[in-house]
Design a protein around this nucleic acid. Structure first.
Lengths: 255, 255
DNA sequence: CGCGTCATTGAGGCTGCTCAAGCTATGTGG
DNA sequence: CCACATAGCTTGAGCAGCCTCAATGACGCG
C-alpha cells in the first residue's frame, strides 16, 4: 500500500522543523530558536524491522520515542511469560512514558512494521523545556494525550460486551488515523487479531466473530487486515453503547 | 472512628514543608527555597464532605489536586448518564491530570470521605518548575506514578477471571496503603461494592461473591467494608494469575 | 509446491450477568 | 425505646455470552 504522504528524504534525516510529523509533535507555539534547541536533543535510531524491539522491560534508558512511520505495540509480560498488549502507537504518538517513574521500562515496544524512530533523552528534554515555555507546555500536552489514550483503553475494557469493545476499538483507531492525516474510512490494520484480542481482553475467536458480525450488519467490510468503514455513524453508535439496530434487513453485504 | 494517624492541625493549615504528605508529594531533592516557591502556588480548598465533587466534567480549571486525607474516586459519565469509576485516589496521589490536554476535565472527582484538598494551578506549577530543576523532576515522577496507576487499572481489567481482578484490586490497594504509611493487613474500604464493581468492570454481585470466596479460602476476612488480609502471599499469588489450589503442570516456554 | 502463520467457523461447557429475595446496619419518627 | 424505613451487602436460581477445543480455509514465503 502506497504511502499517501510521501516524505522528503533529505528532511527525514534531520531537523524537527522539517519533519512531516511536526504538527503532531509540536502543534503550536514553537519558535525557530526553540526548534533548534530541540533538534540538538533528538537522536535518530537506525530503522527498526517488523517484530524488533524498541526497548525491553528493565531497560534503563530514560528516553521517550516517537515513530515517524510504521506502528508499534507496547506489551507487558506477565509471570507466565505471555505478552499482554497495553497499547498501540501510531506515528507521532509518544512511546516510553512508562519509564518516567523509576527510570526503567515496565513494558516492551515492538515494531508492527518497519519504522523510523526519534529518541529524545528525557532528562535533557525536561531541562531544555524548562528554559523554553512553549516547549514546556507542548510537552505537557503530549503527555496529557498519552494519558488520554490510556483512559480510552480503560473505557474499552470496561465495556461488558465484546462487540462494544470491538466497535470502540475500530472507532478510536479511525479517529486517530484521521488525526494523522490518513483515511478513517479505509485502512490496513498493522496488528494481528491476536494483538487486538489481547488489547481488548478477549479471545482471538471472539474478535474474529465480532468483525464478521460487523460486516454482516453492513457496518464495515473486512478482509483480513484490510478494513473499510461503510457506516461510520452506526459504528460510532455501537462504540458508544448503542444496541445494534436493523431497520433495514441488510445483512450479507460483501465487498 | 478515631483517625489512626493524628495530624498536627497547625501544620495542616499551611506549608508543604510541614505537610504530613511531604514525602509523598515531594520525595526528594526539594530544597528550602523550592519549597517556598511551591508553597506560594498551593491553594487550600474548603474541606469537602462525602459525595461532594472536587470538580465536574467540563470544568475549565486547569489545576491538579492532592488529597491530604480521605479518598476520592474519579468517574466518567457515559451517554446514559451512568457513572463509570475510572480511578481511586488515596492521600498524596494526584487528581485531575486528565485536564492536562484540553484544559477541561473529562471526569468528575467525588469525595468518598470527608477530605482536605490542596489545589495547584497547573500553568503556574510548570512555570515555577521550569526554574527549579528539582521540582521539575519531581513533577515528572508524580505524573509518571499517575500513569502507572492507570496501567495497573488496565492490568486489572485485562484479567479474564473475576476473581483475579478482585485479588489484584485488593493486592494493589494494600500496597498503596502501605506506601502512605497505613496497614496493608487491616483496612477499611472507602468505596462501596458498587464502586468496586464499576472499577473492575464486573457486576456488583460478582464482586460480593468474589470477596466471599476469598474469605472461604482463608485469604482474607471481610465484614462489610472492613478487610483483613490473612494470607498476603496467597493474595499476591492469586493477583498474579495463580490458580486457587489446582496443582497444574505449568508450560514453560523458553527462548 | 508444501509448509507455517494467521484468520475464520463450528460445537459445547462454564463463568459471570440478570433477576429476585433475604439480611444487616444505620437512621428516623412515634 | 422500639417499630419501621432505607441503603448497602449477601445469597440463590437460571440463562446467555464468551472461552475452550478443534478443524478448515486463506495467504505469504522458502
Amino acid at each position: 500500500m502506497a504511502d499517501p504522504a510521501p516524505v522528503d528524504l533529505a528532511s527525514l534525516r534531520r531537523s524537527c522543523g522539517h519533519c512531516s510529523l511536526r504538527q503532531l509533535c509540536l502543534p503550536a507555539g514553537i519558535g525557530a530558536e526553540d526548534l533548534a534547541r530541540l533538534d540538538s536533543l533528538v537522536r535518530r535510531r537506525r530503522p527498526l524491522k517488523r517484530d524488533e524491539r524498541l526497548f525491553h522491560i528493565g531497560d534503563a534508558s530514560s528516553s521517550v520515542y516517537v515513530a515517524r512511520n510504521g506502528a508499534f505495540k507496547t506489551v507487558s509480560l506477565s509471570e507466565g511469560g505471555d505478552e499482554r498488549v497495553i497499547g498501540f502507537h501510531l506515528p507521532g504518538e509518544l512511546i516510553g512514558l512508562d519509564a518516567l517513574v523509576g527510570g526503567d521500562h515496565r513494558c516492551e515496544a515492538v515494531a508492527l512494521d518497519g519504522s523510523d524512530v526519534c529518541e529524545v533523552p528525557f532528562d535533557e528534554l525536561t531541562d531544555v523545556a524548562a528554559q523554553l515555555p512553549g516547549l514546556q507546555r507542548q510537552l505537557m500536552r503530549v503527555i496529557g494525550q498519552s494519558i488520554l489514550l490510556d483512559q480510552e483503553h480503560v473505557e474499552m475494557l470496561s465495556r461488558r460486551h465484546a462487540n462494544e469493545r470491538i466497535a470502540l476499538f475500530l472507532h478510536g483507531l479511525a479517529e486517530r488515523l484521521q488525526h494523522i492525516g490518513q483515511s478513517p474510512r479505509q485502512f490496513r490494520l498493522a496488528m494481528s487479531r491476536e494483538d487486538i484480542a489481547s488489547y481488548l481482553g478477549l479471545a482471538i475467536e471472539t474478535v474474529s466473530r465480532g468483525f464478521t458480525r460487523l460486516q454482516d450488519d453492513g457496518v464495515i467490510a473486512v478482509a483480513g487486515r484490510q478494513v473499510e468503514v461503510l457506516d461510520p455513524a452506526e459504528l460510532a453508535r455501537l462504540a458508544h453503547g448503542g444496541e445494534p439496530q436493523q431497520p433495514q434487513p441488510e445483512q450479507r453485504r460483501r465487498a
